[in-house]
Design a protein around this nucleic acid. Structure first.
Lengths: 183, 183
DNA sequence: ATTTCCATACAGAACGTTTTGTACAGAAAT
DNA sequence: ATTTCTGTACAAAACGTTCTGTATGGAAAT
C-alpha cells in the first residue's frame, strides 16, 4: 500500500491560493514550486500536465461545494423558500472564498470550456429534479438574478449601486418567500 | 490632416472576428496577420501593445453599443417597462453578435479588469440617473436575472433547461410590465 | 518647378522572454 | 522493493515586442 501522498494536497492547496489571489492565468510551475514547497518533479509526478491540475482543482471544488450544500441543506429552516434564500445569500455575500475561486478560474475556463464538463453534469442533474410548474419558473428568475448579481459585481459593472445592494437582496428574499408559499 | 488609415480598421475588424469566434485568449499576432492581411509591423504601428488593441476593441464596442441603444430607445413603444423588456430580450436572444463579443473578451477581462474601466464609467452614469424607489428595486432584480441568464448559458451551467427557457423569459417580461405599471 | 526633407504608414524579420512538458538520477520513506 | 518525491536540466514552442527597412505623400525650400 502506497503511503498517502502529502505533496499532492500541498500542491492543490497552493494552487487554490494562487488562483484565488491572482487568477489561473498567473498559475505557473515556478510560482507553484515556491508556494507549495513541493519540487517541480513532485508536482509533475502527481499532475503530469497543467490541464490535469486544473481539472483536479475544479473536481475538488465541486466536491466540497456539494458537501457544503448538503451540510447547509441539513441546517435549513422549514420556512418556504429557505433553500432559495440560502442560494441568494450565497451569491449575495460580498467576499466569499468560493466566489474568489470561481472568479480566479475564469481565465482558465474561458480558454478551455471543457473544464466545466463535470460541473455541467452535476448542475443538469440538479435541474432535472425540479418540477417546472409556474412557481418554479418564477423562482428560477430569482436564481438567475442571484447569479447575475455575482457576475455584475465581479465585473464592476453592477446594475445595482452599492448603497442599494442590500435593498435589492432583501426584496429578492421576500420574493423568494412569496413565490415559495404553498397554495 | 492625416489620411484615413485603412489598416487600422482592418485590424480591428479582424480582431473582433477572432474574438467572437475563438475568444481573446486565442487572439495572437500570427492569427491577426493572417486574418487581417496587415503585417506585424502595421499592426504594431497602430497598436503599440496588445493592451492598446484590446482597449480599442472595447472602446469601439462601447460606442456602437451606445448608438444601438439610442436607436433602440427611439423605436420603443410607450408600453410601461418597454426599455426593460428590450434589455431582457437582448440578453435573452440565443445567439447575438454582441453577446459573442462580450463572451469572447472574457479571458482578457479576467486577466486585466481595468480594461472595463470605460464600460464602468458609462454604466455608473446610467445607474445614477435612475430614481431608486421600490419599483426600481424590483426592476433591477429583472435586470440582474437577464444578465444572469446570459452568463449561466455561456458557461453551459444554466439554471434553466432549454425547454423551459422561453417560459422563464415570458414570465420575466410579464413581471417587467407589472412592475412598471404607473400607480 | 524641381528638389529636399520629413512624417506617416506599413512590411518583415529577429529577438528575448516565459512557460510547458519531459527526462533522469537518486534520496527518502514505507 | 516499491512508491513517493527531490533537484536539475533541457528541448520546444508560443508569444509580445523591438528593430530595420521601404514606400508614399505632401510641405518647405530653392
Amino acid at each position: 500500500m502506497p503511503r498517502p501522498p502529502k505533496a499532492r494536497l500541498r500542491v492543490l492547496d497552493a494552487a487554490e491560493r494562487i488562483v484565488k489571489a491572482r487568477g489561473a492565468a498567473n498559475l505557473t510551475y515556478d510560482e507553484l514550486v515556491q508556494e507549495s514547497g513541493v519540487s517541480r518533479g513532485g508536482i509533475t509526478y502527481h499532475f503530469p500536465t497543467k490541464d490535469d491540475l486544473l481539472r483536479a482543482l475544479i473536481a475538488r471544488d465541486l466536491e466540497q461545494g456539494k458537501r457544503q450544500e448538503a451540510r447547509q441543506h441539513a441546517g435549513l429552516s422549514d420556512e418556504p423558500g429557505a433553500e432559495l434564500i440560502a442560494l441568494i445569500r450565497t451569491w449575495g455575500t460580498p467576499d466569499s472564498d468560493r466566489k474568489r475561486f470561481v472568479a480566479g478560474m475564469l481565465s482558465a475556463v474561458a480558454h478551455d470550456p471543457s473544464l466545466l464538463d463535470p460541473v455541467r453534469c452535476h448542475h443538469q442533474a440538479e435541474c432535472a429534479m425540479r418540477t417546472w410548474d409556474d412557481a418554479e419558473i418564477q423562482r428560477s428568475v430569482l436564481r438567475l438574478a442571484a447569479e447575475g448579481l455575482f457576475w455584475s459585481e465581479f465585473f464592476g459593472c453592477s446594475e445595482v449601486p452599492a448603497e442599494q445592494r442590500e435593498r435589492v437582496l432583501l426584496r429578492m428574499e421576500q420574493l423568494a418567500r412569496e413565490w415559495s408559499r404553498p397554495v
